[in-house]
Structure formats: structure tokens, C-alpha cells
Design a protein around this nucleic acid. Structure first.
Lengths: 192, 192
DNA sequence: CGAATTTTAACGAACGTTCGTCAGTTATCT
DNA sequence: AGATAACTGACGAACGTTCGTTAAAATTCG
């Protein structure tokens, strides 16, 4: 399907240059066609963007949900650290994640509403699952006894900070060190 | 000085729409002049942008350095939590910070090198000071005995995650909860 | 002091370029 | 043959930028 090639190229340029900075000419050139031919597949720039956005959302969502449905151990240390590694792997092999991050926090103004809706949808689902997990571990006496929302938010914070370091991403060693540091302190801060 | 009005308006539009999405027409209109008049004060769009960038850098740097030179107590809990509050205050009353954050992580491609240089300069200075502080607290037995870089990186991670939440910024209560959660877990994870 | 001169800051008009988009035509492929 | 998807050509609008000009403010000089 040629539409997928277009979306792939669009993803690349939207990620690097943002919505306003990405031009249909560049995207078309990457695929090996003229920019007008894109209109045989999409209604226009917005339509193309929103399609890429939804693909990115699905990648993001299913990867995360699948991880937590797969692992079901009573080993929070392994599960949580594994999730951090999943994020790192996803980010490095899948351009969708960087695109998703950029558009989550700096969306094109005229599409902010549509984007925020999708972002909040994921955010909420992940938070709910994470909170349930933590509640289970608290009940099992595996981590400190407190409101489940506390380790949930703290962990989401660790995830965010690692994603930022991934975006920054010009120093592999620094990334490893920051992950190790954040994880060490976080785990000490919640383990019973 | 009219130049400052221009820079102020430019800061606003660069922050909201990014480099590519901000137009000189809009910026000029905000100040009450035509876009051509901007060229009496700046060589062009790049020159205007880099001037705004350097202002933002100075605000960012002096605020942070000043905080750590002012407080010199043996109370890391107070100092560190105060720093988080400083970040939040700065962000909410000063548009420079959001601009700085956006351009740090998603710079316009053709200015990436110049921007990265400025960003790394701040990053490094803050890290050095923070690491010295932590070393002092470790030596005084106030926090866990380990390599000073560990709490430093972990704390920088907390700062980053809070800044992201500030950018996201559509839920004041959620911000407070995330700050509280991250801080609680972090502090428990490093306090002796 | 007052006149002459330079500097500053704004302007309208226009430049060449690129943007996203639409219409009509040709080529490809079942 | 008919449908799909590519093409060429053209559109108005906006972009950043340069030009020449004007009016006012600041500076220099007789």
C-alpha cells in the first residue's frame, strides 16, 4: 500500500520539523512522487496528520497495554524496570513514540483539541492499569503501604523524564546513567 | 526600547507555534507595526530568534544559580523541595521557561547546533552545582551514602518530569499531586 | 543658539519562493 | 473498459526579505 509509504515519510518529517515545518513537497519527494499525488490518498495535510497521529496512538497504546497484560508476576521490581526498558526499546526502534511525545506537548494550535483528546485517552488508560497494579502490590505487602496513586504518579514521572532524555538523545552513556539513577532512587522510595 | 517589545511578542509566538509556525507578520502586529520594521532592529528571523534564545537562557541560568547560592543550609529536604517550587513559579510567571524547554528538545533544524551549545552550557553548570551540594549532604550524613551522581540525576529527572507536567498544564490539581508523589518517593529514596 | 547634518525607526511596495490545494489529463493495472 | 493513482499545470495566499522613502529625533557645526 502506497498510503503507508506516505504516512511513514510524513511521520518522519512531522517528527523532525513539526507540523508547520513539514512540507508536503518533502514528504512526497521522500516517497518518490509529486506533492499533488498525496491528495489521491488523503484529503489534505490535516487529514494526513491525523491519520499518522492515530497510528502513533495505536502503537503507543497497544504496546503499553500488551506489556502489562503479558507480565502478571508478583515481582514489581522486575515488571516496572521492564516497563522502562520497553519504553526505551520502543523509542529507539519506533519513530512513532517521538512523534507522539512532540505532538502531545507541542501540538499544532489549530488541531490542539483533537490531539488532546487522544492523548488524554491513553494517559488515563495507562494510569488506571498502573494504579491497579500498584494496589495489588501494596496489598501483597511488596511495596510501601500508602495511597496507590503516589507510586503511580511517581513512576509516570520517571517514565516522562526518561522519555525527555531519549528525545535529547545525544549521549548513550548519560541515558543509561540517568535511567539507573532514577530507577535506583525510585525503587528505594517505594519498596517495603 | 521597542526592541524589547518585539522580543517579547516573538517569545510568545515562538513558544506557542514554534520557530516555523511563528510569522513575522503576527509578531509585528502584536507590537503594532509592520513586519518590515522588524528589520530595523534585527537582521532577520534567525537573528531575532537567537536574541530571544539568549534572553531565555540568561533568565533560566541566573534564576537557578542564584537560588543555590542563596540557600546554603544543611537542610537538603528544604533546599531541594524549594528548588522544585522555584521551577514551578518560574514557569508560571515567566514565559521564557516554556520557550526554553520547547527549543531544547525540539529545536528548528537549521539552528540545532547553536541551540544545543547553549543548552548544554546550562545543563552542565546546574549539574555540577547540584552534584557538589549532594556530595556535601552525603558527607554530612544527611542522605544515603552513595555516588553523588545518583541523587543528582534522579533529582534532575524529577525536575524534568515536573516541567513536562507544567507544559501539559491543563490540570492544576494533577500537577500538585504529581509533584507531591514524585517528591515523596524521591525523598524517601535518598534520605538516610 | 540656531542651522545643517546624520541617525533612527517606521512605512508601502515589491521581490522571489514556497505553501497547500484544486482541476484536468495521462498512465497503470485488474 | 473502468477504476485507481499518478502526472502536469495552475491557483491564491503567505512567507521572509530587500528596496527606496519619509518623518522625526539626535548630533554636529558655524
Amino acid at each position: 500500500m502506497k498510503s503507508n509509504d506516505i504516512k511513514e515519510a510524513a511521520l518522519k518529517y512531522f517528527t523532525i520539523h513539526g507540523y508547520e515545518g513539514a512540507s508536503l513537497s518533502q514528504i512526497a519527494e521522500e516517497v518518490g512522487m509529486r506533492k499533488q499525488s498525496i491528495y489521491a490518498h488523503f484529503k489534505g495535510k490535516d487529514d494526513l496528520f491525523l491519520n499518522v497521529l492515530r497510528d502513533a496512538k495505536e502503537t503507543e497504546l497497544t504496546s503499553k497495554l500488551q506489556y502489562f497484560s503479558k507480565v502478571d508476576s508478583n515481582n514489581p521490581e522486575q515488571d516496572l524496570y521492564g516497563f522502562l526498558q520497553l519504553i526505551i526499546d520502543l523509542f529507539q526502534k519506533n519513530e512513532h513514540v517521538k512523534f507522539w511525545l512532540r505532538m502531545s506537548f507541542f501540538p499544532p494550535a489549530h488541531l490542539e483539541e483533537a490531539i488532546t483528546e487522544e492523548v488524554m485517552d491513553i494517559e488515563e488508560k495507562v494510569q488506571v492499569i498502573l494504579e491497579q497494579k500498584f494496589q495489588g502490590w501494596i496489598d501483597a505487602g511488596l511495596i510501601i503501604e500508602e495511597a496507590a496513586i503516589t507510586p503511580t504518579f511517581a513512576f509516570l514521572g520517571v517514565v516522562d523524564s526518561i522519555m525527555l532524555e531519549l528525545v535529547y538523545g545525544n549521549d548513550e552513556q548519560r541515558l543509561k546513567d540517568k535511567v539507573t539513577a532514577s530507577w535506583t532512587v525510585f525503587w528505594r522510595g517505594i519498596s517495603a
